[in-house]
Design a protein around this nucleic acid. Structure first.
Lengths: 354, 354
DNA sequence: GTGAAAGCGCTAACAC
DNA sequence: GTGTTAGCGCTTTCAC
């Protein structure tokens, strides 16, 4: 037994046949039964497994796809990753995790790095986008699927309508009789931040919209602690009062679940009950929100579905030819739970689907 | 401009120098200043980027490491992944995410697949282990670092002492005056399940240990819903009673944060307060537990630290020579929070470190 | 159905 | 300091 791994040549010699026949036999393409048997046996004896690099160099195919996001710790991206892995893995593809970085230029660099050809395709969900990025994606040497902003017509993409999703949340609160509605958003210069702000502004500007008071508070980040701070500013007493008074808002729409949980914690800090004093909605429908107490009413953006859709688009591109750029849209869905339960009735809503 | 990507040969021709000089110039090894300039310019004009497959085939180096776990959705593994990525990425390595599957044999298959040489090393945290797996890891053609069970002396590994961690939790509850202590564990045939059970049994068998009542309830899985069901069995009235009575236990040690949150939800279902009626501890110190209400006292097993340590071990192996198998241990640390706050005093502990 | 041989893109001897 | 050349392991024409 040699010290290094066995190669195809070793197998060929062992089986006493040519290199070409060995390759064919192992792939089951145009080889006689006896040939296949002989080669299989030799391969098994040698513990042969084909070398990925040699194959890649020859076939120009890595059987790898990259998935890149800014923060792989974010539950939304974790769900996407799991979904992508689940879809491509049975087709023999591996998943390489990469980071887009926070900025457009770092994302451009990432796309540019595809030039080394270490993956067959890239699925990317950029936090920030721009024309340069779109340009770079179009000229990328491998297929790219974007999850997020729909680059209409030019680039494969999977989108959702988070703006409409915010609208769903606002409607829901209005239907519940809430009339003083605040929005806690994350940074406005991000793609999701901008879209969700647009959604809130549109919803509250509709002719049918009626509310006593409306406001937006921008948190420093899409995190629990940033949400908590933002909500303290929003819900706290305007002057230094010790007694808890009627809060300025009876409902808060948060731009994601993490912010929403921060809002609930802040309400708690201020002695306000949720949903009694303040109803709260989140977005992304994470497991975190589902198990939280009170469980969180949240707008699902179908993270797993988007991941699956992106993965399928990628497989289409990579396995099949070069179809027209495709665009898949996943609609937002409101999941009503405890954090917006009606104040009066004794019924307790929990985990329901609208 | 050719339709396909530019190769080193293209750059060499463009610069009017040899292939070897081009390669050297691009790597900055033994090339004159003018040569470097010429080659750099040519490469830039052609938009050249080196092909990963060619380089891998020649150097026998992929600049990739694999990270494999059973469930990439688990927050603990997500933290490890993020940490590993953070460590290896600056050294030019990519991270490939893989699945071990639930069983020993699927994990063996995973290790065996390293034979294709698509990564330079494997970091794996198996849910279930056995001698066959240890054997397979030892004969793997690439370095393997195991996070979890310490295969003493033979295999690079990063471990923690979750058994001792459970001991920390038991001690803490005892010090708080709790005397009827239950343990909610996950499946006992998993590595973590077995270790934590051992920890609980050891802690409650110590000569110094004094409690009125001790019990273990095994949940079907390490999840919130399984924890909730297990805790219902444990804390619920033995017969069909409507009135909430004194619960059979005043403290529950859970084998991880997810189970702990299930326990708290069950307590809530049964009208019991946490920590008033029942104190609850978790394990893994996840963000979920930190933002939960009440925030969760939890034993940190240093997921991120373990990920970092494993990544460094891997880099040592891959970059440097072949040192002795190394073993890194990360000690458990108790993080005391609201879910075990003393019943009487009005002080509210929150997020403190012991 | 089988074998011989070319060549994917790169790096590292080896000569000069 | 620079050029020539071999060869990593594989698939795939191309002849037979």
């Amino acid at each position: 037994m040699t010290s290094s791994r066995a190669t195809l040549i070793d197998v060929a010699q062992r089986a006493g046949v040519s290199l070409a026949s060995t390759s064919r036999a192992l792939h089951g393409t145009g080889a006689s039964k006896t040939m296949v048997e002989r080669v299989r046996a030799a391969a098994a004896e040698l513990g042969y497994s084909p070398d990925a690099a040699g194959r890649t160099l020859r076939m120009k195919k890595t059987f790898q796809v990259a998935f890149a996001v800014a923060d792989i710790g974010n539950p939304v991206y974790v769900e996407m990753l799991a979904a992508i892995h689940e879809v491509v893995s049975p087709h023999g593809y591996r998943v390489v995790v990469m980071s887009t970085g926070d900025t457009v230029s770092s994302t451009v660099d990432l796309v540019r790095s595809m030039g080394s050809g270490f993956v067959d395709g890239l699925i990317v969900s950029p936090l920030r986008t721009g024309d340069e990025l779109a340009h770079e994606i179009r000229r990328a040497p491998v297929p790219v699927v974007v999850i997020g902003r729909p680059f209409a017509g030019e680039i494969d993409s999977v989108s959702t309508d988070s703006a409409a999703g915010i609208g769903l949340a606002v409607e829901h609160l209005l239907a519940l009789g809430r009339r003083r509605i605040a929005f806690v958003n994350g940074p406005l210069d991000t793609t999701p931040g901008a879209a969700r702000q647009r959604g809130f502004d549109t919803a509250t500007a509709a002719p049918t919209f009626s509310a006593e008071r409306v406001a937006t508070e921008v948190a420093d980040d899409f995190t629990v602690s940033a949400g908590r701070e933002a909500a303290r500013r929003l819900l706290g007493p305007s002057s230094a009062q010790a007694e808890p008074t009627r809060p300025p808002f009876d409902a808060v729409v948060a731009a994601n679940d993490l912010l929403a949980i921060g809002v609930i914690r802040a309400a708690d800090d201020l002695g306000l009950s949720v949903p009694g004093d303040v109803a709260v909605t989140g977005m992304d429908d994470t497991e975190l929100g589902q198990v939280f107490k009170p469980s969180l009413t949240s707008v699902s953006l179908g993270s797993a579905e988007r991941g699956r859709a992106a993965a399928r688009l990628m497989l289409d591109r990579v396995e099949a030819g070069d179809p027209q750029p495709q665009h898949v849209a996943i609609g937002p869905r409101l999941q009503v739970r405890e954090s917006t339960a009606p104040a009066q009735p004794s019924t307790r809503d929990q985990g329901g689907t609208r």
